[in-house]
Design a protein around this nucleic acid. Structure first.
Lengths: 241, 241
DNA sequence: CGAACGCATATCCTATAGGATATATCCTAT
DNA sequence: ATAGGATATATCCTATAGGATATGCGTTCG
C-alpha cells in the first residue's frame, strides 16, 4: 500500500466533452467543414450546453475548430496540397532538431523522459487487427505518439508544444494512408529510436530527416489518390441518430 | 456609400472578457501565479460567469493560464531561461524562412499581401506615450504586428499560424519589461522590409536572422537583469477592491 | 422572371440557481 | 503541544430558462 497515488486526476464534463469531440474530429467522424450545433451536441452527449461550450472554446484555440461569433463552430477544413507541403517543411525544421536534442539527452537517468524500452516499443506499430478501420486508427495514433515522445524526450516544452500543434492537423490526413506503408514506417521509427538510445545526435537528426522525407512521399501519394476519388466518405455528418 | 463594409465584426461578451483578461496578464496587473476567481471576475466585469469561463478556457489553451480541475485557474509562470532559449531557437528556424518566402513573393500584385509602404510603416515603431507601461505594450504590439505581417506575406497560412502560435511576443513581453532599444529594432526591421520589397530572398532571410540574434541578446540582458532583483512587484494580487 | 422585403424558426449567447468538491478553521485526543 | 479529523465556507461546475441574432422561406413588387 506504499504506492504514491498521484491523485485520481479529477476531471469534469467539459474535459470529457473535449476528449470526445477531439476524438471524433481526428477520426473524421466529424468531417471537415461540418457545422457543430451546441445544443445538438449537448443532447447527444446527454449533458448541458455549458461544458460543451467550454470544450469548443478550447478546440478552437487549438486550431481544430473555427468559430464565427453568433453563428457557430465548424470543423477546420482539410489542408490544401500547398498547405500540406508547408506543413512538412515545418516538420522538417523542427522534428530533426527534437531528435537531435533527444539523442543528446539519451533515454536513461531522466525523470521526465522515456526509457530505452519505452521508446522502442513506441517505435513499433501495432499488429494488424481484424477491423481494418480500427487498425488504421491504431496505426495513426501510434505514429503520432512516437513523434510526440521523441519531442518530449528532447526536454524542451516549447519545442514539444509546437510539434504537437502541427501534428494535430497532420493527423487528419493520416487516415488516407496506405496500409502497406506501415512496415516502412516502423523500420524508420526504429532507426530514430536506436540513434537516440545510442546517444548519437547527428545520426538521430539525420534518421528523422530521412523518415520525414519518405513519410512526405507516402502521404503525398495518398493525398493525390484521394484527389481522384473526391471524398472517401461522402456521407453527410448530420449527427442525428 | 459604395464602401464595402466587411461587417461590424460582431463580438460577444466572451470575446471582451478574453481581450480584457489577456491585456491584464500582459501588463502584469495579474501576476504570475495569481489565482483567478470565476465569479470574482464576473462581478468585477459586471457580467455572468458563463462568458468568463469561455474566455478562461481559451486563455488556458493559449498557455497564459493553467487550470486545475475543480480548483481554479492561475496565471502561468514566466518563461525560464531555458524556455527562453528554446523559444528563440524556434523563431530562428521559422521566421527567416518566412522572410525568405515573403521576399520571393515581393510586395506588389498580391491580393493577400501587403504593399511596400504598408510594410515600411509597420517596420516603424510608435512614439513614446505618457504611460511607460502602456508605451512598452504598444511597442510590443507594433513589433508583433511587423513579424506577423512578414509571416503573412510569405503566403503560407501554415507558417503564419505556426509563428503566431508561438506567441513569442506575448511571453517575452510578460517576462521582460525593460524597454528594448527601440531605435535598433526599427533599423533592423527596416532592413528586413527593404530586402522583401526588393525581392532579395537571401538578404531578407539573413536580415531576419540577424535581427533575431540581436533581439535575443537584448532580451537576454533584460532577463538576467530581472533575475537579480527577483520580483519587480512583490505585492500580492488579491484583486479585492 | 428576378429581386427585395418581411416574417418565422433555429441557434447562439447570457444570466442565474443549485449541487458538488476543495480548502480553511476549529476541535479533540494522544 | 502537535497531529488528526470533522465541520463550515468559498468556489467551482452543471443545468436550465430566456433574450438576441442569423438564416431560410414565402410573398410581393418591379
Amino acid at each position: 500500500m506504499g504506492e504514491i497515488q498521484v491523485w485520481p486526476e479529477r476531471h469534469t464534463l467539459a474535459d470529457e466533452a473535449y476528449v470526445e469531440l477531439k476524438s471524433r474530429i481526428l477520426q473524421s467522424i466529424l468531417e471537415p467543414g461540418a457545422k457543430l450545433s451546441i445544443d445538438g451536441l449537448a443532447k447527444h452527449m446527454a449533458i448541458s450546453q455549458t461544458p460543451i461550450r467550454e470544450a469548443l472554446a478550447r478546440l478552437e484555440a487549438e486550431g481544430l475548430l473555427a468559430r464565427r461569433p453568433l453563428v457557430g463552430y465548424t470543423v477546420t477544413p482539410l489542408l490544401t496540397i500547398t498547405e500540406f507541403d508547408d506543413l512538412f517543411d515545418l516538420r522538417m525544421l523542427m522534428e530533426p532538431l527534437a531528435a537531435r536534442r533527444s539523442a543528446e539527452r539519451g533515454t536513461d537517468r531522466h525523470d521526465m523522459g522515456t526509457t530505452a524500452d519505452g521508446l522502442r516499443s513506441m517505435a513499433r506499430t501495432p499488429e494488424y487487427a481484424h477491423d481494418a478501420k480500427l487498425s488504421q486508427l491504431e496505426f495513426t495514433e501510434a505514429d503520432s505518439r512516437f513523434h510526440a515522445e521523441v519531442a518530449a524526450n528532447s526536454g524542451s516544452t516549447v519545442l514539444t508544444k509546437a510539434i504537437r500543434r502541427l501534428d494535430a492537423h497532420l493527423h487528419l490526413h493520416r487516415a488516407y494512408m496506405e496500409p502497406e506503408s506501415i512496415g516502412e514506417t516502423e523500420v524508420e521509427h526504429l532507426a530514430v529510436a536506436e540513434a537516440i538510445i545510442a546517444k548519437k545526435p547527428l545520426a538521430a537528426e539525420e534518421a528523422m530527416r530521412r523518415h520525414l522525407e519518405r513519410s512526405r512521399t507516402r502521404h503525398r501519394a495518398a493525398f493525390e489518390a484521394a484527389r481522384t476519388e473526391p471524398t472517401p466518405k461522402p456521407k453527410r455528418a448530420k449527427a442525428k441518430p
